[in-house]
Amino acid sequence: MGHDHAHSHVDDSQSNKQLALAVAINVLLTVAQVIGGIFSGSLSLMADALHNLSDAAAIFIALVARKIGNKPADNTHHFGYKRAEILATLFNSSTLILIGVYLIFEAMSSYLNPQPIDGWIIVWVAAFALLIDLITALLTYRAGANSSMNIRAAFIHNVSDAMASVVVIVAGTLIILYQWYIVDLIATILISFYVIYHGVLLLKQSCRILMQAAPNNFDTQAVTCALTKNFNIEQVIAIKVWQLDDKTSHCELLINAHNSLDLAAVKHFLQHNFNIENCIIEKHNNL
């Protein structure tokens, strides 16, 4: 057991370093994109820069939230601090939506007041951004994108950044070849809608957890049938399931059951078959 515990700390430390490196890279990229956007006059490049800055902030908040979430339960927070990461996701998703809306308004303003754009600066800066986005996506993926909604959100953001950079490269190329300046505005709006889309998805997921909704695809009827079929349970009177965070579900179960019912076996069954980590069972003894 001691070896596994130490290995976990090593993994956490390494993934935290990867996240910190991802933050630093994204901040430097944002600075480069802002400078490129100013000199080229490209709004889509500025849009991509703001998206990258929001990703740097999101990764930083995810890193801080992970550290807070690892704190053990105490006399004040009986369930621990796991929801710190959910609060971070709520904040990050709300910020993404606001940035997306702001960029759309900026795109409209730019359309009414057109400015000359240097396509070559757009292409070179966006190509550099694409490389950095792919590196950052790899870092966030290795830091735990498969096991944490918060880190996974940062990973998705960086993948969307890479896609946005591709859009910007295409826009810059069309400006160079055909002087289609309107493409820059279209690219800005496409990036904005993509940012808003992911922001809304993350906002819905975090709100579901904070509002103590049942996990996605949780079927109360299926759980009830499984319990009455496999155990000496006459009736499932009530079952309430909620998520503590994106990995841990809790349950309160009220049943009519025989005295011989093994409560530990019921809890193990729920954990193994329905991913319910902890369950409080109130039993009415009929027989």
Rank of each mutant, 00 (worst) to 15 (best):
T228V: 11
L50K: 01
V168C: 06
L139R: 03
I132W: 06
M108R: 11
V170E: 04
A56W: 00
G144S: 06
N217V: 10
H157A: 01
V27Y: 00
A164R: 01
G69W: 01
N92R: 02
A107F: 03
V31E: 01
M46L: 15
A129Q: 01
V236M: 11
I104V: 14
D74V: 05
D11T: 13
S147R: 11
F274E: 06
S109K: 09
N232E: 14
H284W: 08
A24E: 06
G41Q: 04
I59T: 09
A265R: 10
R83V: 04
I255Y: 04
T89R: 00
I276D: 00
A47G: 15
G36F: 01
L96Y: 02
N285P: 14
F218S: 08
D262Y: 04
I68E: 09
S109T: 11
E85K: 06
H78C: 07
M163N: 13
Y194S: 13
F39C: 12
A62H: 01
W124V: 14
S206A: 15
V123K: 00
T30P: 00
A84W: 02
M46Y: 05
L287P: 13
E234R: 15
N216F: 05
D4M: 15
A62S: 14
S40H: 08
M1V: 09
F218K: 12
I156W: 12
C251V: 06
A88G: 13
N146R: 11
N16F: 09
N278M: 10
K240I: 12
Q243C: 10
A32G: 10
I175F: 02
L98H: 08
Q221G: 10
I121H: 06
V167I: 13
V101R: 05
A171T: 01
I175G: 02
S148I: 00
I25P: 00
A49V: 02
V167H: 01
H198D: 13
I186K: 02
N217C: 09
L112A: 12
N278E: 12
S54L: 03
I191N: 01
E106K: 13
N146C: 06
H3E: 13
E282N: 14
I186R: 05
V27L: 12
P215K: 07
K204H: 12
Q33G: 02
W242V: 13
T173P: 08
K82L: 12
I68M: 11
V223G: 02
A107N: 04
N286I: 15
E277R: 10
L138K: 14
Y194K: 08
S165T: 05
L202C: 10
R83E: 05
V195R: 01
I61M: 11
L103E: 07
K240G: 08
D161W: 00
K17C: 08
I196R: 03
T220R: 10
I25N: 08
A62Q: 01
D262Q: 10
V236L: 08
S8Y: 09
Y81L: 04
G199Y: 00
A145D: 05
E106D: 05
Q235T: 13
L19V: 03
I122E: 02
V31N: 05
D12P: 04
Q243D: 08
